[in-house]
Amino acid sequence: MIPGWLWILAYTLIGLGVLLGLLRAFLGPKTPDRLVAVDALVTITMGLMVLLGLWYRRGIYLDIALIYGALGFIATLAIARYLEGGL
């Protein structure tokens, strides 16, 4: 089994990561900065969802991470296409 201190450490690290990503999304001087923050946050969220799935011991929760990763990617791509003037 995964020891308790490791859970605490992993959640603290990922929570701090989410906080920093949110800060960059709010501060980011221009839209590309916010977009980078959103892209990083989607990946961090996938990690968090998989870790929480292990915490709850529910294998079906991995599906949500899968769908979130695939669809957050499409949203990032759409915003990037808008920015470069291709939409």
Partner: peptide
């Protein structure tokens, strides 16, 4: 959304 990816 798969089709949206193709349109993009």
């Amino acid at each position: 959304l798969a089709y949206l990816l193709g349109f993009l």
